[in-house]
Amino acid sequence: MQFDNYRIRLLKNTDLEAYYGMVSKNRKRLEDFFTGTTSRTQTFEDTKVFLAEMLERVNKREYYPYLIEDINTNTIAGFLDLKNVDWKIPKTEMGLYIDEDYADKGVSSKAFKLFCDYCFDTHGFKKLFLRTHPQNYPARKIAEKAGFKNEGTIRCDYKTTSGDLIDLVYYGKLSNE
């Protein structure tokens, strides 16, 4: 998938160094809401194991990690993933984070909308959903621009890296919307 000067593609083993570099550079921004990623990528070796596990889960159709890549520089601009896949429905939870150098430039919104269409068309999901902190206004705006509907707030639904229990706002989008 391509838009503007960006490509969205599945993460590969050969992305290890670039992926580790991007997460390391953005660790402080990511640590509260991407606890799995930040805790599993503390060192290059940790990241190597984590990446291998992610790719094994792709083979099992349990998890799908994608990169947003800047075509001009071959730099990772962001990360999209599909987690909590439930093939019985079929539905999946979406995640997104963007490198600080690409934040506030519209890349996230365009990538997310295109990726939603891809998830419905290619994977055949009937529902996409995401969860975010009530004060994460950029994520909420991206979801709403992509046609997601606020389905409610679940209280004390997530533990941050610092151990705080926080509420999460749930958003959902159906394939026929």
Score class of each variant (00 low, 15 high):
Lys91Trp: 04
Thr160Leu: 14
Asn150Ile: 07
Ala52Val: 00
Ala143Pro: 02
Ser39Gly: 08
Ile89Glu: 14
Tyr20Ala: 01
Leu174Ala: 02
Asp121Gly: 06
Phe148Asp: 01
Val107Trp: 01
Ile8Ser: 00
Ser39Trp: 07
Val85Ser: 11
Glu93Tyr: 10
Leu174Tyr: 09
Lys110Met: 10
Leu128His: 07
Leu82Asp: 05
Asp4Arg: 03
Arg29Ser: 04
Gly21Val: 00
Phe148Gly: 02
Gly152Cys: 05
Gly163Leu: 15
Leu80Cys: 11
Pro134Gln: 08
Val169Trp: 09
Phe3Asp: 07
Asn150Cys: 14
Tyr137Ser: 03
Arg155Val: 02
Phe148Val: 01
Arg61Cys: 07
Phe112Asn: 05
Ser108Pro: 06
Trp87Met: 08
Phe115Asn: 00
Arg140Tyr: 06
Lys127Ser: 01
Arg155Asn: 08
Thr132Val: 04
Glu53Val: 08
Asn13Leu: 06
Cys156Gln: 15
Thr160Phe: 03
Asp86Cys: 12
Ile166Lys: 10
Leu10Ser: 10
Tyr64Asp: 04
Gly163Cys: 15
Ala18Val: 00
Ser24Glu: 09
Tyr20Pro: 00
Asn5Val: 02
Tyr66Thr: 09
Ile98Leu: 15
Gly95Met: 04
Arg57Ala: 15
Thr37Gly: 04
Thr37Asn: 09
Thr37Gln: 14
Ile166Asn: 09
Arg155Gln: 11
Glu45Trp: 03
Leu80Asn: 06
Cys119Glu: 07
Glu62Pro: 12
Phe44Ser: 02
Asp46Ala: 13
Leu174Gln: 06
Asn176Ile: 12
Asn84Ser: 12
Lys127Phe: 01
Pro138Ala: 09
Leu55Asn: 05
Glu45Gly: 03
Arg57Trp: 09
Leu30Met: 05
Ile76Asp: 00
Leu55Arg: 07
Asp86Ala: 10
Tyr171Leu: 08
Lys141Cys: 02
Glu56Ser: 15
Thr41Trp: 06
Phe3Ala: 11
Val85Trp: 10
Phe115Glu: 02
Leu114Ala: 13
Leu130Glu: 03
Glu93Gln: 14
Tyr20His: 13
Phe33Tyr: 15
Met1Trp: 12
Lys127Asp: 01
Asn5Tyr: 03
Leu165Cys: 11
